[in-house]
Lab assay of single mutants.
Amino acid sequence: NTKMVRFKKGDSVGLRLAGGNDVGIFVAGIQEGTSAEQEGLQEGDQILKVNTQDFRGLVREDAVLYLLEIPKGEMVTILAQSRADVYRDILACGR
């Protein structure tokens, strides 16, 4: 149940992230009207890879910085997997 989305970065990627470290990086929110939303990313999706950067094992701050450093107008390719069950557990633990 993995999906790959590809879009051109606007002012931002339009994602709020949660998790990090051993639990993985998850989409915690999506800005309305962004390409990330239009391409089908959803809250609870685990981000496995962005462009050439493996997101598994990253701390959340490093994942956020990586997304911020992608220049506006560059193509962004995100490999994600729907993991809403794991995401709910992360929220319940306050991570």
Rank of each mutant, 00 (worst) to 15 (best):
N1I: 14
N1C: 12
N1T: 08
N1E: 04
T2F: 15
T2C: 12
K3Y: 10
R6L: 04
R6S: 11
F7L: 04
K8H: 06
K8Q: 13
K9D: 03
K9N: 02
G10K: 10
D11L: 03
S12V: 10
L15A: 06
L17S: 04
A18S: 09
G19T: 04
G19N: 02
G20A: 06
D22W: 04
D22G: 10
D22Y: 09
V23W: 06
V23Q: 09
G24P: 10
V27Q: 02
G29M: 01
Q31P: 10
Q31F: 00
G33Q: 04
G33E: 02
S35N: 14
S35A: 15
A36D: 03
E37H: 14
E37P: 07
Q38C: 11
Q38T: 11
Q38D: 12
Q38N: 12
E39H: 14
G40M: 05
L41G: 00
E43D: 06
G44Y: 01
G44Q: 01
D45C: 02
Q46C: 04
I47F: 10
I47G: 04
L48I: 11
L48T: 04
V50N: 05
N51T: 04
N51P: 02
N51D: 04
D54R: 04
F55K: 09
R56N: 11
R56F: 04
V59M: 15
V59A: 15
R60I: 15
E61F: 02
D62G: 04
A63P: 03
A63R: 04
A63N: 09
V64N: 12
V64Q: 15
L65N: 15
Y66I: 06
L67M: 09
L68Q: 15
E69F: 01
E69T: 12
P71T: 02
K72C: 06
K72D: 04
G73W: 06
G73S: 05
G73N: 06
G73I: 02
M75G: 05
M75E: 14
L79R: 08
L79H: 15
A80T: 07
A80R: 02
A80L: 07
A80Q: 05
Q81C: 09
S82I: 00
S82D: 10
R83N: 12
R83L: 03
D85G: 09
V86F: 08
R88N: 13
R88W: 11
R88L: 10
D89C: 07
L91N: 10
C93W: 11
G94F: 07
G94N: 15
R95F: 15
R95I: 08
